[in-house]
Simulated assay, not measured.
Amino acid sequence: MMLLHGKTMLVTGGSTGIGRAAAIEAARQGADVGINYVGDDAAADAVVAEIQAAGRKGFAFKADVADRASAPAFVARGVAELGKVDIFVSNAGICPFHAFLDMPAETFERTMDVNLHGAFYMVQAAANQMVAQGGGGAIVAVSSISALVGGEFQTHYTPTKAGVHSLMQSAAIALGRHGIRCNSVLPGTILTEINRDDLADADKRRRMEARIPLGRLGQPEDLAGPIVFLASDLARYVTGAALLVDGGAFVNLQ
């Protein structure tokens, strides 16, 4: 049984990493999928090709989520291409690692604009469409283990991920009366473009792997199943929740 049969999904930051994995798995589970992206056109086209290879409709919409006008535009494109919006995955994010004391204002503001403000406006636009349609819906935001712990070179990043987690909790209350469920996933260290340079240090990577009870860093595909679950009717009574997907890193204090 395909968990998302007959559903439609929109995903921000869908051309690489966690967004890409979620989009492709959703298509395999029966959903038509639209992705938003801001980078490489070829990468976005490749994701759409995989969605279509799974027998589903797919499209790519290029826009920077930091531009608030991109939110209603992406949702409108989703309705035009797919007919409706049942599931929305807010995934787009950046983390330009930097020390705290000399953090450039531009780096801080850009991280806030993409990770938190972008998530707010995208989720708001999707929620308005779901309310207008009737019938409820599911919103999943990609937060981070960084919503719960600190990072020396992430003082600009961790507040945004805590904000995304909090956004889902409050949106769950605001949208519950409309049958719209709002949840977040909190990835641990996942091998994506966002931390490729940081994990190029082999010694640091080995130290991080040693702290994880499952013995490895995560892959983007490790998030696809949890996101699909939260988007599906299997999670029909789950809202305002946060699902850690970190290989056990958070609970390992030894």
Rank of each mutant, 00 (worst) to 15 (best):
G151H: 11
G151F: 10
E152D: 15
T155Q: 15
Y157T: 11
T158P: 09
T158S: 10
P159F: 10
T160C: 09
T160G: 03
K161L: 06
K161A: 05
A162N: 15
A162Q: 11
V164Q: 01
S166Y: 13
L167V: 07
M168H: 06
Q169I: 14
A171P: 06
A172I: 02
A172S: 05
A172W: 00
I173K: 14
I173Q: 13
A174S: 10
A174N: 06
G176P: 08
H178S: 08
G179C: 00
I180P: 07
R181G: 08
C182V: 06
S184R: 06
S184Y: 09
S184V: 09
L186C: 10
L186V: 06
P187M: 04
P187V: 04
I190G: 04
L191M: 13
E193L: 13
E193P: 08
I194A: 07
N195Q: 02
N195Y: 04
N195A: 07
R196L: 10
D197P: 14
D198T: 13
L199F: 12
A200Y: 09
A202Q: 15
D203R: 05
K204Y: 09
R206W: 04
R207L: 10
E209V: 11
E209I: 14
R211P: 14
R211K: 15
I212R: 04
I212P: 03
G215R: 03
R216L: 08
L217V: 11
L217R: 09
G218T: 06
E221K: 13
E221F: 11
D222G: 04
L223I: 07
I227H: 01
V228F: 03
S232L: 05
S232Y: 05
L234N: 15
A235Q: 06
R236A: 11
Y237K: 05
Y237T: 05
Y237M: 09
V238S: 01
A241Q: 10
A241C: 06
A242L: 02
A242Y: 00
L243E: 00
L243Y: 03
